[in-house]
Design a protein around this nucleic acid. Structure first.
Length: 427
RNA sequence: GGAGAGGUGGCCGAGCUAGGCCGAAGGCGCUCGCCUGCUAAGCGAGUAUAGGGGCUUAAACCUCUAUCGAGGGUUCAAAUCCCUCCCUCUCCGCCA
């Protein structure tokens, strides 16, 4: 959510931002509503001030035994009028907040112009794509053949876009989670939390998934509860309605959770394999920082996510999302895309964003400056560190051998009882 | 699931069954000043948030409105009365 005063005084900047995003929102419409709202507010508050004053008058008259009947009658009609105005105001307030909640964040000046993912800007590449003398297989083929991935049984017990991990795959999932959390807590300074994977509506409003993207979420029937689409939601909301002190910043949390997405509108996309599941594991990194340093913090966060891929020896590239591809709440996002030899392309494995004060304003996350000045909004950032399932996909495809076996990356072996190679058991 | 207690300012804690200068006593904490060789103590003042309007380059400031878990209702007027919901705590039951 943007600052309403900022909207009024910097309307042109916001309009430019919306245009850059290819958004169809017409800010003028909002400005008209806003003006109407303020006029109404003025009238209502003025009337209330008079009522409050006269009410005090009545109190005094009753004490002295004077007759207050005429004043009482006058106030009765005034109160009716106020009630009507309040009703009107409530209406227009709703309109205003609907508007504000639906305006996306303004892209940072460094965000490249563009329409969709084809306009994203490559920042750097890392690693060497493995050379294969054979035609590389896709992960679902490898994983299924090696007995680790079972999509069919998952489809039976639940439905499409679910998987059962078996044996080495289940173990590798667990190993990856532990490995990622260990790196982030022991090397990169994150405090680990394990939050609820069910959250209420208010939390989803705070981070910006609601009210606009209800259809992407799993909603528990007849409740105020939703399954989280990312740990960003519960972790960011830890500090909802909280005023921190400046010395506490930056706060850095990492969290492993399962994530749940309805994937509405993605029919036909990645229908095979583990790339796009309704339920998947992710280690998330969340940072609460001073506004002055949030873009340095974004680079830091990105580095923390990259460090996992480097340790695993998985080649990747970093891209800056263009304005048209930018998420609703984000001012700037880097995607990390890992190389998948089986698919022959880079696929997103992490998304690192600076939301500036967009989420902080919605969620009321502030800090009190050391100088004792007025509290101000923090900047929030988050990124995957990393998507666990997709990491397994990348390992399978990058470390596959001609005979269909898969070498286990060295850093992962201690987490898998020293297992160094996944191969089909004979017999 | 059953029975009960409770949610008030940074914290503690009055007020709530006689509804009326209550945004809210008192205390603690904090800030600024005074005082004191230093410290402690003492004295004085201040100390919520959001929104609107005024003033301003801006801030400060002034003023109004709202906020005593949330949302409704009664009333000229609600922290105080009524309804619904949420949360916390205690006891019992159940349970990984």
């Amino acid at each position: 959510m943007l600052d309403i005063k900022f909207l009024r005084t910097n309307a042109d900047e916001v309009k430019n931002g919306l245009r850059k995003r290819r958004s169809k929102l017409d800010l003028e419409q909002f400005l008209v509503i806003d003006q109407k709202r303020r006029d109404l507010l003025l009238e209502t508050e003025d009337l209330k001030a008079r009522r409050n004053q006269s009410s005090g008058e009545i109190s005094r008259m009753k004490k002295t035994g004077e007759n207050a009947d005429s004043l009482l009658a006058e106030l009765a009609t005034m109160s009716t009028r106020i009630k009507a105005l309040d009703e009107e105001l409530k209406n227009i307030d709703q309109q205003t907040s609907d508007w504000i909640m639906s305006i996306p964040n303004v892209p940072h000046p460094s965000v490249p112009d563009g329409v969709d993912e084809t306009d994203n800007l490559e920042v750097r590449t890392w690693g060497v794509k493995p050379e294969m003398t054979f035609s590389p297989k896709e992960h679902w083929e490898l994983g299924t053949a090696l007995g680790g991935l079972d999509f069919e049984t998952a489809a039976k017990i639940t439905g499409s876009r679910f998987v059962i991990l078996k044996g080495w795959a289940a173990k590798m999932e667990r190993a990856l989670i532990s490995f990622m959390l260990d790196v982030q807590t022991m090397e990169n300074g994150y405090d680990e939390v394990m939050p609820p994977v069910i959250v209420n509506r208010e939390s989803l409003m705070g981070t910006g998934q609601l009210p606009k993207f209800e259809e992407d979420l799993f909603h528990l029937e007849n409740t105020n509860y939703y399954l989280i689409p990312t740990a960003e939601v519960p972790v960011t909301n830890i500090y909802r309605d909280t005023t921190l002190t400046e010395v506490q910043l930056p706060i850095a949390h990492c969290a492993y959770t399962a994530c749940f997405r309805s994937e509405a509108g993605s029919y036909g996309k990645d229908t095979k394999g583990m790339i796009r599941q309704h339920q998947f594991d992710k280690v998330e990194l969340v940072r609460f920082v001073h506004p002055d340093s949030s873009y340095d913090e974004l680079e830091k966060l990105l580095g923390h996510a990259e460090s996992i891929l480097r340790k695993l020896g998985l080649p990747y590239r970093v891209v800056t999302l263009c304005a048209g591809d930018l998420g609703f709440s984000s001012a700037k996002t880097y995607d990390i895309e890992v190389w998948l030899p089986g698919q022959g392309k880079y696929r997103e494995i992490s998304s690192c964003s600076n939301f500036e004060d967009f989420q902080a304003r919605r969620a009321a996350i502030r800090f009190k400056p050391a100088a004792g000045k007025k509290s101000q909004l923090v900047h929030t950032l988050n990124g995957s560190g990393l998507a666990v399932g997709r990491t397994m996909v990348a390992i399978l495809e990058n470390y596959q051998q001609e005979d269909g076996s898969v070498v286990v990356p060295e850093v992962l072996r201690p987490y898998m009882n020293g297992l160094d190679r996944i191969e089909l058991k004979k017999g």
